[in-house]
Every structure is written in structure tokens, then in C-alpha cells.
Nucleic acid binder design. Structure first.
Lengths: 206, 206
DNA sequence: TAGATTGTTAATCGATTAACAATC
DNA sequence: TAGATTGTTAATCGATTAACAATC
């Protein structure tokens, strides 16, 4: 894939391009332009062209962009041309909700769930087996897992992350309310719900 | 509250300050400095001082910051000196998980849940009653709600948001996978899970 | 007092916007 | 061809970092 250093500002806009281009594709729009995308997405047309040109030349002067081609390019850039295997660690309310979320349809398989609770171990959530967390390492040796969804209590998060690191896991989608420290070759994407809620309260009182 | 125009970059760092200062307070740390905070948080000490000085002068030259005072200032800035009343619209897996999340302990009351499903209406989730979404307007006339948590299917989100706007609701915490259009006097905070997951796949393939 | 650290101004860096030649 | 729109360079804007006087 592209090796230039793309800024996080650009990267975080990519899913939004993906979302709206898919919608255009589904509603039969064949062709678009940076100006039209600007109206729909709320980014400037200049920024949109700059963003795309980080990755290549996807349009045609005087014509614009073919929606299908552009959509496929964005999919490639984001890495959506392959499927990903995930596991969920922590079968609490949030972990269970994520097990039911419907990731399969968008290219993600949830292969297993892990939890400490004797009542949950052995059960299934949305057809996915809940295993004892103490067999995590064994499981990871025998299964090729791309992404670990971490939805354990804050106190447990760093310890689990350390174990994942030792098991060779390279990416964590972190739903716990703490920042996790990992080596540079691992990637962490945080969903800090409380931080998000506090951003909202700030804006309410502004 | 402060009326200067603070950039979103600064605002999104505030919850992190809050989080670490609370931890310091709980572990009995009395005093800190921008240099120490820099080591812990990973922001530069210069940036930390700049951030604080957007809102006032919270430290003392030569001494640093009193953890308790700074924590209380950050709480005030974020708006955590009062409690907030919330409702959840959409009692699916995610909505139900949020009903169980434990917001009460951090200053947020979940007063009611709304859903369309006949099986769910009248039941309780975590002791909170599930109402029929068609009584939403009546409910909002009789109850003072600060924040609406929106966890409905994408197709329903904009329509519900329109109804909330008419009912005078000013802030939405949006968990649906679409961008919602609202007037300028409303604030929206999005938790776009799929966008977050796609950011992760990009970083994995980089 | 001497050392430390803030508050704040100035310098730098990076991201966004504007402009326009290339060209479909 | 004329009009439209890209790809890309240059200009601007905003955010971060550096520096340092003020002062505890």
C-alpha cells in the first residue's frame, strides 16, 4: 500500500468518502466531481482533490470522477478489499452488543469471544462461542486474528493488551476507558465513549 | 462559560486532562507541572500550558499546578459541575448496552428509553422504562432532557433528529452510522463506529 | 536568594484554501 | 472548439513548538 506519510486528518476523512460514495453508487449515480462532493460532504473541493491526490490520480480533467472507480479506489486505500478476523475480549453489555453489531456484512468476521465469567463461558452470543480468557494465548496460536476488540473493564485493559502483544497481535480496537501503551508496531484505535460525551457537554455549555 | 472560540483540537484534549487529573487526585498526587503532565499524557508541555491558558491562569510560576484545583477547573470547563438528563432512542443491542453503561456514576441520568418494538415497550432495561417512540414528543414536553442518545437504525436517524429539533432538544449523541443535519443551535457528537474501524484497517495496511 | 515553572509572545510547522495550467 | 474540472503549485491560515520574561 501507499507508504508516504499521510496525516491522520486525511485518514479520518477516508471513511466518510467511502460512506457517501457507496450511497451514490447504490442510488445509481455514475459520475461526480470534487465540487459536488464538496456540497454533500461539507469539505472544500480543494481539500477533496488534495486528499485524493495523496493516493493517486483518480479523476479526469473536465469530467470529474467515475463514482464506481473512485469508490473502489477508496476501498483499496482503506483496506476493504479483504476480510478481517476479529475476536472480542470482554462479554459485558458493550462486548455483547458488538458481537451482535453486524460486522460480517461489511467484511469482518467475529470468530470468538473471551470472558472471565463462569456463567458466560461456554455460552454463545449471536452464534459466537464465549471462551475462557485463560485460553486466549492458545487460541491465538491456532487462529489467525487480525483485530482484537477490547471491551474489558479499565483495570484489566493494559494487562490484556500486554498479553496480546506477546501473542503477536498487531491491532486493537479499544473500547475501554483508558489509554493503552503498546509498542510501535501495534496500532490502537480508541473509542473513548466518555471522552466523546464530555466533548458534548462542553459544546452544550459553550 | 468561556466564549472565546476554542478550537476542536483543544476541546478534544480536555477529557484526557480530566481523566488523568482524576487519576492523580485518586492516587494522592497533590501537585504537578506541565512537564510532568507532558510525560504522562504525551502532549508537549508547551501545548499543555497553551491549552490551559485558553481558559484562565490555573498555575503558579515556579510551583506548577495544584492537582485538585486544576481538576476542578477542567471539570468546570467541560461542564461537569451539574448533572445531565438523557434519554436513549433505540433499544437495540447498542442502545441496551448504553442503558447499562453506568453513566449515573459520572453525572448522567438515563431517564427513559424509546423504541418501536411491541416486545420491548413497557419492559425495563437496567430499571429504565422502555416507552413507545410515538409518545416521544409528549414525554419531551413534560421532562427536561439535556441529551438524547440516538441508537436507531441509519434510515430512521434523520427523521428522529427532526422530531427532536421540533421538540426543542439541543444536543444529540449520535451512534447511528449516518451524518445528521441539524440547525446551528443544536450540537451533535458522533460516535461513528464503522468509521473508527475503517481507520484501524487503514493503519493495519499502511 | 537561586531554581523552577508558569504565562505569553514569537517562530515554526503543517494543513487548508486559492489559483491556474493542463487537458478531457 | 468551448466549457468544465482535474492535478498541482503557491498562498494563507491555524495549530504546535520554542523561547523567555515574570515571578513564586
Amino acid at each position: 500500500m501507499s507508504n508516504k506519510d499521510i496525516s491522520m486528518a486525511v485518514i479520518r476523512r477516508l471513511p466518510k468518502y467511502h460512506r457517501y460514495l457507496r450511497e451514490m453508487l447504490e442510488t445509481g449515480v455514475m459520475r461526480t466531481s470534487s465540487k459536488e462532493l464538496s456540497n454533500i460532504l461539507g469539505f472544500s473541493s480543494s481539500q477533496i482533490r488534495q486528499d485524493f491526490n495523496n493516493f493517486g490520480e483518480f479523476g479526469q480533467q473536465g469530467y470529474g470522477y467515475k463514482v464506481e472507480d473512485l469508490y473502489n479506489e477508496i476501498k483499496k486505500i482503506i483496506g476493504l478489499t479483504k476480510r478481517y478476523n476479529m475476536i472480542i475480549i470482554g462479554a459485558g453489555n458493550l462486548g455483547s452488543a458488538l458481537a451482535n453489531y453486524g460486522f460480517y456484512d461489511i467484511g469482518f468476521n467475529v470468530k470468538a469471544i473471551f470472558d472471565n465469567s463462569k456463567e458466560k463461558i461456554g455460552k454463545e452470543i449471536n452464534g459466537i462461542k464465549v471462551n475462557d480468557t485463560n485460553v486466549l494465548e492458545t487460541y491465538l496460536i491456532n487462529n489467525d486474528i487480525d483485530i482484537v476488540i477490547l471491551s474489558v473493564p479499565s483495570k484489566a485493559a493494559q494487562n490484556i493488551a500486554d498479553r496480546l502483544m506477546i501473542s503477536g497481535i498487531k491491532s486493537i480496537w479499544n473500547f475501554s476507558s483508558v489509554d493503552i501503551v503498546v509498542p510501535d508496531d501495534m496500532v490502537i484505535e480508541n473509542v473513548h465513549l466518555i471522552d466523546s460525551l464530555m466533548t458534548l457537554t462542553y459544546l452544550i455549555n459553550k
